[in-house]
Amino acid sequence: MDSIHVRDLRLWAHVGVLEHERRDGQWFRVDLTLNLDLSRAAVDDDLSASLDYSTSIKALQQLAAEIRCLTIEHFSEQMLNRLETLHGPVPIWLRLTKCAAPVPGFTGRVSVERRRHGGVTPTP
């Protein structure tokens, strides 16, 4: 299976358990992989035989501007729904990362990984 990868898409969204996270917003990072057969698009130079990744990026940017919710799990579910509406039931892998979790003394990141329709985790 071939893949289209989108990496390090930064989104500002109003998501979080704490009220100020939903009120003020914060940065998230998205990595996603869409698995599909790209051989016809490669041979024929035909975008209609592939997926236009720019529409995926725009759709996720629009979702981030609209959403207000508590959990990154719900945010990721809405992302998968949006991508499936756009591209149909293609295998999708998605990682949604909260760039600055408000946990005292914690400077790392928190992520959820989701798959739909057998989406394959990409190799590093």
Score class of each variant (00 low, 15 high):
47 L>K: 11
47 L>R: 14
47 L>I: 15
48 S>P: 07
49 A>D: 13
49 A>L: 10
51 L>A: 15
51 L>E: 13
52 D>I: 07
52 D>A: 13
53 Y>D: 11
53 Y>F: 15
53 Y>V: 05
54 S>E: 14
55 T>I: 11
56 S>H: 12
56 S>W: 09
56 S>D: 12
57 I>T: 08
57 I>G: 00
58 K>I: 12
60 L>F: 12
60 L>W: 12
60 L>H: 10
61 Q>A: 12
61 Q>F: 04
61 Q>H: 09
62 Q>A: 15
62 Q>V: 13
62 Q>I: 11
64 A>P: 09
66 E>A: 09
67 I>P: 01
67 I>D: 02
67 I>K: 01
68 R>W: 05
68 R>C: 09
68 R>E: 12
69 C>Y: 06
70 L>G: 11
71 T>D: 06
72 I>N: 06
73 E>I: 08
73 E>T: 07
73 E>W: 07
75 F>N: 11
75 F>S: 12
75 F>V: 10
76 S>V: 03
77 E>Q: 14
78 Q>D: 05
78 Q>G: 01
78 Q>C: 14
79 M>F: 03
80 L>S: 07
81 N>L: 15
82 R>Y: 06
82 R>M: 08
83 L>P: 09
83 L>E: 10
84 E>G: 08
84 E>Q: 15
84 E>M: 08
84 E>N: 11
85 T>F: 08
85 T>W: 08
85 T>M: 13
85 T>E: 15
85 T>L: 12
86 L>H: 09
87 H>V: 11
87 H>Q: 12
87 H>F: 13
88 G>V: 05
88 G>A: 02
89 P>I: 06
89 P>V: 06
89 P>G: 08
90 V>Y: 13
91 P>G: 15
91 P>L: 07
92 I>Q: 07
93 W>D: 03
93 W>M: 04
93 W>H: 08
93 W>N: 06
94 L>N: 10
94 L>D: 11
95 R>V: 03
95 R>Y: 03
96 L>W: 09
96 L>S: 10
98 K>H: 02
98 K>S: 01
99 C>H: 09
99 C>R: 11
100 A>F: 08
100 A>I: 09
100 A>Q: 14
100 A>M: 11
101 A>R: 02
101 A>M: 06
101 A>C: 10
101 A>T: 07
101 A>N: 01
102 P>M: 03
102 P>C: 00
102 P>A: 02
102 P>W: 03
103 V>K: 02
103 V>C: 00
103 V>H: 00
104 P>G: 03
104 P>M: 00
104 P>I: 00
105 G>D: 02
105 G>T: 00
105 G>A: 02
106 F>V: 03
107 T>Q: 10
108 G>C: 00
109 R>G: 00
109 R>T: 15
110 V>I: 07
110 V>K: 00
111 S>T: 05
112 V>F: 06
112 V>A: 07
113 E>I: 01
113 E>V: 05
114 R>G: 04
114 R>M: 14
114 R>K: 15
114 R>Y: 04
114 R>C: 11
115 R>Q: 15
115 R>L: 10
118 G>R: 05
119 G>D: 03
120 V>T: 09
120 V>C: 05
120 V>W: 01
121 T>L: 04
121 T>P: 02
121 T>R: 06
122 P>F: 04
122 P>Q: 02
122 P>D: 04
122 P>A: 00
122 P>Y: 01
123 T>S: 08
123 T>A: 06
123 T>G: 05
